[in-house]
């Protein structure tokens, strides 16, 4: 127990305390002075707008991932599908690659002279502007986070007791009823974890909005990055980080209340 406590103290507690400390100070000519100014600044409309946008985008991304990911997980988990090992492999391999590289590759696909538009030109169709807009950002987010939605749902569906399905059929449920009344409710823990594992990184991402959005959609992640790397206003950056952390902890708490038994197979 003690080694873990020490480790937690050193690597988790102390850094968080440091961030909170920074967030409560303001740099003046006489050094760091205690102040709530950073927090009051965070609540200005312009920054609230940024936070709202981050949450909204993350929400859209999570929704799309759920709608797209559930059927895929379902197909992969059904025993009749023979090539599922290969399909699983196809989903996992990109995850082993660097996040940045994967996002970069979309530039080549979506550019005005990129792959999609080149194909369209071959057929004499007009080119579309697919890059540097909100849609491109959501696309990039979905692409990067989809496996995190599919995997937990797949795991739960796979572990599901087949005999429960048969029992439902036995009692007169056709495929649709089995799906709605049995499969979906029982897969809820997986869905909850998937939603958590997508929403959390989605709300903090900054690379996707920089690269695919042309930096036109400032999100919380961009704001924090800016404060720490370019402006050197660590105090304000810390305040925004604290707000973000609170947001995430709140959402995780809500999610875990629903999934009491932790059957979701989540990574965190």
């Amino acid at each position: 127990m003690l080694p873990y406590l020490l480790w937690a103290l050193l690597f988790i507690i102390v850094p968080i305390l440091l961030i909170i400390y920074y967030s409560l100070c303001v740099e003046t000519d006489s050094g760091l002075v205690f102040s709530l100014q950073n927090y009051s600044r965070v609540f200005q409309p312009i920054y609230l707008r940024i936070m709202w946008r981050s949450v909204a985008l993350a929400f859209m991304c999570t929704l799309f991932c759920l709608v797209m990911g559930y059927p895929v997980a379902y197909i992969m988990a059904s025993k009749e599908y023979a090539r599922k090992g290969f399909l699983l492999f196809l989903f996992l391999v990109p995850m082993w690659m660097n996040f940045l590289l994967r996002t970069y590759s979309w530039l080549t696909i979506l550019e005005r002279n990129g792959i999609i538009n080149s194909v369209l030109s071959v057929f004499g169709l007009p080119n579309i502007d697919l890059l540097y807009n909100e849609e491109a950002v959501i696309l990039g987010m979905i692409y990067n986070f989809l496996p995190f939605m599919i995997l937990p749902i797949y795991t739960v569906l796979k572990k599901m007791d087949q005999s429960v399905i048969e029992a439902a059929q036995d009692l007169g449920a056709d495929s649709r009823t089995v799906f709605l009344r049995v499969t979906v409710p029982l897969s809820m823990p997986g869905v909850i974890s998937g939603v958590t594992m997508v929403f959390m990184p989605a709300v903090t991402t900054f690379i996707v909005s920089d690269l695919l959005g042309g930096a036109q959609f400032m999100l919380i992640g961009n704001l924090i990055e800016q404060q720490f790397l370019k402006i050197r206003d660590w105090n304000f950056g810390s305040a925004v980080s604290v707000i973000l952390m609170t947001l995430i902890i709140a959402s995780v708490a809500i999610f875990s209340m629903v999934d009491k038994d932790s059957e979701g197979g989540a990574l965190f």
Partner: peptide, 20 residues
């Protein structure tokens, strides 16, 4: 005939109750 159309019902070995 698929199972849900047959006029039989089954009691499964591990009961297969709906846990939810």
């Amino acid at each position: 005939l698929p199972p849900h159309k047959r006029r039989v019902n089954t009691v499964f070995q591990k009961y297969a109750l709906f846990p939810n």
